[in-house]
């Protein structure tokens, strides 16, 4: 049985070279943190803490990953999530009647979420239209919409924080089903759906093709413009789902919430094996990378490292990951060239 397991691992390892190191890294990080904190790291209370932040971070990282696979980037995910959250919050506060019954509550919450999704789609359409149809570089487009969306949120809220959501809505952030928090279930379902789209739907395959070579993809009969439009809509919707979760967890929304998360999402994507030049990326890698980074952050917190120091550490880790990916790539490239030369000789 062990031999069977080793064989399976070997084959997984060969097919997933870009993320094969991650399980080991995860193991090492968990071990180090457990030892360093004298076991505090593994206590149930801490594990709950550790898991609590993951859903929104994971959803936002997925939102970053989708455009990155097409060799783009979406810098507007945080500001579009904030705009979505603010609009949902205003809707919930404005519409929710005092002492409403169960049925009305559900309708209103579903309505708020639906409204949030519509807002996300509209925000994503603007990004996607500019990148796909007007051919504005993704960095510029999303930098522009990042300013614009944040500006709109500021204008709507006049710079204030909108807080105190209805109790029922907060359940998304703290209720559990079968022992799992609802927001965690949401993330797991979304991650699974994204993995299926990436690997088992024509659209998902197109994403990778566009990321590697948009010209050849267009010559193969794929409507590249539409693929890009969808990419940014999906990215925005994922950010919108993150907004639903964040609104419930923080019980508030404002224009500048979570601006440091942009770095985290890029870091998670890069560590998770998504190629910033497009064409490659795996949801499984992203999830593992997220757990690793959360474990590091959480462990450092336990050790008394202050939160703004964490930002600097994450930045340094991103540089480290870029360097690691670069040297790994160099190694593969050398191997590939050697193989190619050997083949030419035959």
């Amino acid at each position: 049985m062990f031999a069977e397991f080793v064989k399976r691992y070997q084959s997984w390892h060969d097919r997933n070279q870009d993320i094969a190191a991650l399980p080991w890294l995860l193991f090492v990080v968990l071990a180090i943190m457990t030892v360093a904190t004298g076991g505090r790291f593994l206590r149930a209370h801490n594990i709950t803490n550790l898991l609590a932040q993951m859903p929104e971070l994971g959803l936002l990282s997925l939102a970053m990953m989708v455009p990155m696979v097409t060799a783009g980037i979406n810098l507007s995910i945080i500001s579009s999530a904030n705009l979505t959250a603010v609009i949902m919050a205003l809707f919930l506060k404005g519409v929710f009647p005092q002492g409403a019954g169960g049925g009305t509550t559900i309708i209103i919450i579903v309505g708020a979420i639906a409204l949030g999704m519509i807002v996300s789609i509209v925000l994503g359409l603007l990004n996607g239209f500019l990148v796909g149809y007007v051919e504005v570089p993704a960095v510029l487009t999303t930098l522009g919409t990042m300013i614009l969306y944040e500006g709109i949120t500021l204008a709507i809220t006049r710079g204030f924080v909108i807080s105190s959501m209805p109790e029922a809505y907060l359940l998304i952030g703290n209720a559990r089903i079968l022992g799992l928090p609802i927001h965690m279930i949401i993330f797991l379902v979304v991650a699974l759906v994204m993995a299926i789209i990436f690997h088992r739907r024509p659209y998902g395959r197109h994403l990778f093709f566009v990321g590697s070579n948009p010209t050849a993809t267009a010559y193969s009969g794929v409507n590249v413009r539409r693929v890009l439009l969808k990419t940014y809509v999906i990215s925005s919707v994922l950010a919108g789902i993150a907004a639903v979760v964040m609104l419930a967890r923080f019980n508030s929304a404002n224009a500048r919430q979570g601006s440091s998360l942009l770095l985290s999402t890029v870091l998670i994507c890069m560590l998770g094996g998504t190629d910033p030049f497009g064409g490659f990326g795996k949801v499984l890698g992203l999830v593992m990378a997220m757990v690793i980074l959360q474990a590091v952050t959480n462990g450092l917190n336990l050790l008394g490292v202050r939160s703004f120091a964490t930002v600097a550490i994450w930045g340094a880790m991103l540089v480290g990951v870029i360097a690691y990916r670069y040297y790994q790539h160099q190694k593969w490239e050398r191997k590939r060239k050697q193989l190619q030369r050997a083949r030419m000789q035959q």
Binding site: F208, F209, S212, N213, T215, A216, T217, Y219, G279, F280
Partner: peptide, 9 residues
């Protein structure tokens, strides 16, 4: 190279 194939895939 540019139109026919997606080289890295």
């Amino acid at each position: 190279l540019t139109q026919g194939l997606i080289m890295p895939q």
